[in-house]
Design a protein around this nucleic acid. Structure first.
Length: 194
DNA sequence: GGCACGATTGCT
DNA sequence: GCAATCGTGCCT
């Protein structure tokens, strides 16, 4: 069987999708399918948890400190992967949004696992499950390596849950903004508080 | 060159 | 509660 046959059917999201307002893109990403292909082997999962980061004014965003070697990709064109190493042991995957020169991105925090993907709640484990590391930093989100597909699934009107972003308590007032978007279910990195 | 710390995770 | 583990950003 070929890689084509096991790819999810649908349209690939391009720069015109990611260039829009970052909060809007984050919400619209819920339910879309993240696809990773390694050596012709396809793995995918449905996006159920993402967070918006809007620099340089957003103190929680890496781009808060401006243009540095690490944040260069965030300043680049939309529809590219921003991957960084965290705590020396995990990678985190982001999608760059907004036009070139506007350093914003969306952190991918959890997937509903599809074929070839084990349970992977949390940005570090998700990257491990999909074989995503910093060598993919800066690559465009196009087939076959790494891309996002709209397969027609649409969350129900009340399915989207918003809340404060995880792990950014240092960011002062920015930490409280409801810029984490989830589809409630068993695959979130942290369940909604009762 | 040195040093503090992190958009995490799992074990005590 | 805390250690693992290392690149990044800021300081000297």
């Amino acid at each position: 069987m070929t890689a084509e046959l096991s790819r999810p059917a649908g349209s690939v999201l391009g720069p015109d999708f990611f260039v829009r307002d970052t909060l809007r893109v984050a919400e619209d990403l819920l339910g879309k399918v993240l696809v990773r292909e390694v050596d012709g082997h396809v793995r995918w999962g449905r996006l159920v948890e993402v967070e918006a980061y809007r620099g340089p004014e957003d103190r929680a965003a890496h781009s808060w400190r401006g243009l540095t070697p690490r944040t260069r990709v965030m300043y680049g064109p939309p529809g590219h992967a921003y991957v960084y190493l965290i705590y020396g042991m995990y990678n985190c995957l982001n999608f760059v949004t907004r036009p070139e020169g506007c350093p914003e991105a969306i952190l991918v925090r959890a997937l509903e696992p599809g074929p070839g993907v084990g349970r992977c709640s949390g940005p570090g484990l998700l990257c491990r499950a999909l074989d995503i590391d910093r060598w993919l930093n800066g690559v465009p989100l196009v087939p076959p390596q790494l891309y996002v597909v709209d397969d027609g699934f649409r969350p129900g009107p009340d399915a989207v849950v918003r809340g404060p972003r995880i792990g950014v308590a240092y960011a002062g007032e920015w930490a409280a903004l409801p810029w984490r978007f989830c589809l409630d279910g068993p695959h979130l990195s942290r369940r909604r508080r009762s």
